[in-house]
Design a protein around this nucleic acid. Structure first.
Lengths: 365, 365
DNA sequence: GTGAAAGCGCTAACAG
DNA sequence: CTGTTAGCGCTTTCAC
């Protein structure tokens, strides 16, 4: 029964001890819990001298507010939940960095859960985070078809969708302008004389890789493919299915997919890839097939990484404002938490950075 | 006052509503809270029929356990805190992926905080996580000198150190064998005939970059440099200070540091870099100086990334078992949480992968 | 300026 | 097998 500090010499939070409670601080300072709370919390009126006594007592006992108890009382945890496919993926880790830092800045901590884009795990993640009573949720939804668990009648929690829209789920969403990004990339390729253009598209909706567009792809993917198709058509060209592949998000699958594009008798002279992993796969395939990037095959990829500009040739990219995206997601969410206001969808512009991986083939036909 | 469900038609957790509480489930099922808790929690004895009624009531109300209340009651949150330098850094994001997944597997969620290797932020992070009453902490300590906030008399929480030992802080620690990793790398270089060897070392203890070893570097860095020095000495060679640089962790600083090594009249023929960012910097410098990797300058780097094997030439690396490292950290921590047992320090072996970036210069002297 | 007491939602010890 | 009740640690009226 004597699991609490009993002797004065025992102050200071030694190893085996339980953390000091407010009442211990209050006792030591000879005030009531209410007064101690006021002194420490900095609200209400407290005599300056009393405040000092409490402060001293608190630090003597190495007192730390119990945020669990406070959360219970207030009904808010100052914690937000983030549900994404894979934190080790290059896109998500930049986004999360922004989310954690922005959240910390306004007094929230972040719980992260990976789903590998499997809906069942996403549902489970949302359940766990709901039970933990996070104040809000940032989710990169894995499927545009199964989203009941995110709908307002199942989820009574502020919610922001990250990177992917869900038509039919009218909630705050922050994305980049993927359609325009794809259009600009294709336009550059065409301007340089390319007409035979391939697409290597990351999609969790596929096993290994596939020639055909899966039934349900996330809006990001959808938009990019549609954008590419539009840009081609506008120039009187067509995207040939033989040069389009949907691949699982890992480099191994991407490599196989890329080989199946570039290994054909008739192969494209340029390829647009949708992320770092796809770009790696394309590079690996070129290696295998003895094709030179920026010569035999030109390349533009979505997203940017430190090594893209160090590679030989330096890789041209559609750079997305990932940090800003994460930041915007938190800003929207916190606004929603505090005011209940749900804003307009936010779409951030991306920027084409032309480096050295796109060969000019004008007049070489 | 009527903020609770009052009409039967209102069931199901509509938007504005507060989450259903246990007592509401109990009422709907016509049992007491205790019985409802037993039925839902699956402990104690409950009549099968009663259980069913409770289950039905719970799902009708879309009831979710309030883990905050449960945490309050039990004194544990099923949450662990992770304090690292930067989640977008290639090493940490792999480690975190392992940590989150392993933790989820045994029923814990993860709060992540970035410090950018600034001790003040580390101290603050530990404070916040302590207040949130996490059950344990995984920390990659930023300084081997300032660690009072992690010492047992300040921190009454299970703790595991990740990737970096702190002499003088005898707590569970999981690291890789960095000394041996460096030795093997240097030995390979020497075996291929290199004698003029440089070092590009990431260190947060430095601004931009520096020729001299900062006063306090983390054990990881310390071990690698010592290992390299040892391997050189064993072969009768010396590490020349002129070819050693300590750089801030970003590619920009690394590039400048690398240029300052390779731009000298007398430059090394091989360089060992300590992570992806340093390797990028070296590559960038070679580009600037018109030096060819694997020809003019050979390269081995710590850690491995998808693009390392796709680069031309493919980059040789000391691959560390990062996923296992994160996994081990969680395993140790959970053991500590559950049994109080603190194990032996764990040191995982790394593996040298020789690809194409080390030129054989034997006999070419 | 300070204290007494209620209560956030849940669980577990104890009765019945 | 089920109900009653105390209490986790904190904040916050409401009195004094």
């Amino acid at each position: 029964m004597s699991r609490r500090v009993e002797k004065v010499e025992d102050l200071g939070g030694k190893p085996g001890e339980k953390a000091a409670r407010l009442i211990e601080v209050a006792n030591l300072a000879n005030v009531s819990r209410a007064t101690a709370a006021r002194a420490l919390g900095g609200y209400g009126r407290v005599n300056e001298d009393t405040r000092r006594r409490v402060t001293v007592a608190a630090s003597a006992l190495n007192y730390r507010t119990n945020e669990v108890a406070r959360a219970m009382r207030h009904g808010r945890t100052s914690t937000i939940g983030v549900v994404i496919a894979d934190i080790s993926n290059s896109f998500f880790n930049s986004a999360i960095r922004a989310i954690i830092d922005t959240a910390a800045h306004v007094g929230y901590q972040v719980l992260v859960i990976n789903t590998d884009d499997e809906v069942e795990r996403e549902i489970e993640a949302v359940r766990v985070l709901t039970e933990k009573r996070v104040d809000g949720l940032i989710v990169a939804p894995s499927s545009p078809a199964r989203y009941q668990h995110l709908a307002a009648d199942h989820l009574a929690l502020p919610l922001v969708l990250l990177d992917r829209r869900i038509p039919g789920l009218p909630v705050d969403t922050v994305t980049t302008d993927d359609r325009r990004g794809a259009i600009e990339a294709i336009d550059l390729l065409i301007a340089r004389g390319h007409t035979k253009i391939g697409l290597l598209v990351a999609s969790a909706a596929v096993r290994n890789y596939s020639r055909n567009q899966p039934e349900f792809v996330v809006s990001t993917t959808q938009d990019r493919v549609a954008g590419a198709r539009f840009a081609m058509a506008r120039s009187g060209l067509a995207l040939r299915d033989a040069w389009v592949r949907y691949s699982e998000g890992n480099v191994t699958s991407a490599t196989e997919a890329a080989v199946s594009i570039l290994g054909q008798k008739s192969r494209p002279t340029a390829v647009l890839t949708t992320n770092e992993e796809m770009a790696c796969g394309l590079l690996a395939a070129c290696r295998q097939l003895n094709l030179l990037i920026g010569k035999d095959v030109s390349l533009i990829s979505f997203d940017d990484w430190p090594w893209a500009s160090v590679f030989a040739p330096a890789i041209s990219v559609v750079k997305r404002p990932i940090y800003d995206l994460g930041k915007a997601a938190v800003t929207q969410l916190v606004l929603q938490i505090k005011t209940g206001a749900t804003g307009k969808p936010i779409e951030l512009p991306s920027r084409l950075i032309d480096r050295e991986s796109v060969l000019d083939v004008k007049g070489k036909k």
